[in-house]
Amino acid sequence: MNRQSNLYTIIYSTILVIVVGVVLSVVYQALRPQQLENMANDTKRQILASARIIPSGDQTISDLYSSHIKDSYIVDSKGQKIDSDKDPFEINVALEVKKPADERLLPVFECTTDNGLKYIVPVYGAGLWGPIWGYLAFDSNGDTIYGAYFAHQGETPGLGAEIEKPQFCDQFEGKDIFSKSGEFISVSVVKVGKEPADKAWVHAISGGTITSQGVEKMLLNSLEPYSAFFLNLKAGTPETDMTVSEPVPTFESTETAEVELNSVEP
């Protein structure tokens, strides 16, 4: 057959594309379960890291997670538990932070540590090049940060990417997110020499200004809806009220949500 003829070219390209397509789908299908498990494990590792639990030795992340995270639930911006069949672990924080505060589903993970019960909440925001996210663990007084974990998709290495380093994350330990009068004030990320006197602050990363500002905005936006929940903890009122006064915002299409989550946390 003439190898320069149109017919040959069309048949050749068709066969090539079909072969490549089949190979890729087989690879994808074969590796998918393992990939999903890796992603779930990675999220579990991040949640545990915020409570300063680092896996060691031969312990698997899933075992470590189930031995520490004893309870998890969803609250609304009034601090009430939402009676939902949705798994808090599956909530796509990236979508939630875009909603108005009173419509958000706010996941909380209760973590038992050597230093008592901690409450872990997710945060999500934007850095310079892409999304940044993290988890914050709070003491049972609902005010003091016990530990922080931040991650990013593609911040500049050596600059904005430093937010995931202990040098940055560890600064958050022991900071209070409420003022003495009980107002939510979050934690500021500031330049050396610009430290505010009246609220908690951490030092920004020099050269990573936009990412540092992103962290500050992320904390403000993601933690603010939790104020009521934390104030309840602070006041020592146990979270027993399971009644829901308002209709629960429905969470459409779990499948889309999962795909979204995967795409922002590769």
Partner: peptide, 26 residues
């Protein structure tokens, strides 16, 4: 076929890169 050789090369490279990416992820 010479007329589509660049496209064929591209398809092969892209497929290999996707496979490498998927294998690393798993």
């Amino acid at each position: 076929p010479t007329s589509i050789r660049i496209i064929v090369q591209l398809v092969v490279v892209a497929a290999l890169v996707v496979i490498v990416d998927q294998v690393l992820k798993a």
